[in-house]
Design a protein around this nucleic acid. Structure first.
Length: 278
DNA sequence: CGACTTTGACCAGCGC
DNA sequence: GCGCTGGTCAAAGTCG
């Protein structure tokens, strides 16, 4: 399966050569600026696509290795660490990916936790300057502990879902060893309350559904289903959709771009009417 | 005043 | 059995 990337490059080199007045020059300048910005975004997108391809390759290699181990031993090894090296953030700022896995280590090593077999990980990139351990995901969490673990100098925070009374879901949040700007969030269990739109981003203490503001920044959105094997094609298309939406949002919310577009269209219309009036 | 966070203490599993 | 480690508890502090 060949990963395909969305071609979002825009042809912004539509510069009317006959228009040499002041407004035209401003517009040309604006178009140049937008062209360079578009180029930057295209480069960024290419980088994301490359990361995605690398991740897919990594995943297929890992799957091959895992199957080989099962064939050889019949049972999964309890010592294997399977997750942290195989889950990579696909995006840049405040974006995430999900690794729907059941941690073998936790399932077999600590029987007392086997009542919550659904374990999944989410990676959220944050600002380098930010040291908080809060990940906004649409649910309300109550922190009940924090611990420094042996394999990671940054503390691990423990949260329980307080969105509904008696909800068994817990999550652990810890910064990645390799990249301290990445928050690794581990979810355990399933919510016993109704479905809820989940929006994942970093740095929102005590995020409650009512306090969420979708316009407050780039927030990735997707239905979060712990431990379900997500179809890779669906993932791909959702990623592409997300990228296109991000691009469209960036352009449509940019007042400079919309103003330039409006003046360009009105200029064209005026041109057209003045020519037809002659 | 209630909800939430912080943080030290405690508990249980695991390896030696 | 003992020490290490991760996970949880609960009292104290903080905030709106």
């Amino acid at each position: 399966m060949e990963p395909t990337c969305v071609d979002t490059s825009l042809n912004l080199n539509v510069i009317p050569s006959s228009h040499k007045d002041l407004a035209g020059e401003v517009l040309v300048e604006e178009l140049r600026r937008l062209s360079s910005e578009n180029k930057r975004l295209t480069e960024r997108l290419n980088q994301v696509c490359e990361n995605y391809v690398a991740l897919q390759k990594h995943l297929s290699e890992f799957n091959g290795m895992k199957n080989a181990n099962f064939d050889k031993e019949g049972i999964p090894s309890m010592k294997r660490k399977v997750e942290s090296e195989n889950c990579v953030n696909l995006f840049g700022v405040n974006a995430y990916t999900e690794c729907s896995t059941i941690t073998e280590e936790e399932t077999f090593k600590r029987p007392k936790h086997s009542t919550s077999p659904n374990v999944s990980k989410v990676f959220v990139r944050t600002d380098a300057s930010d040291t908080s351990l809060y990940v906004r995901d649409g649910y309300q969490w109550r922190k009940y502990g924090q611990k420094v673990t042996r394999d990671n100098p940054s503390p691990r925070a423990y949260f329980k879902c307080s969105y509904a009374p008696g909800c068994p879901v817990k999550k652990k949040v810890q910064r990645s060893v390799e990249d301290p700007t990445v928050l690794v969030t581990t979810y355990e269990g399933e919510h016993n309350h109704g479905e809820h739109q989940t929006e994942i981003s970093a740095n929102s203490p005590s995020a409650s559904p009512s306090s969420m503001n979708p316009s407050a920044g780039p927030i990735a959105t997707l239905d979060f289903i712990p431990s379900k094997v997500v179809d890779i094609n669906a993932q791909k298309s959702s990623i592409q959709q997300f990228l296109v939406q991000q691009m469209a949002n960036t352009l449509t919310t940019d007042p400079n771009f919309t103003a330039a577009l409006a003046s360009a269209i009105s200029g064209r219309i005026l041109d057209h009417t003045s020519i037809s009036n002659r």
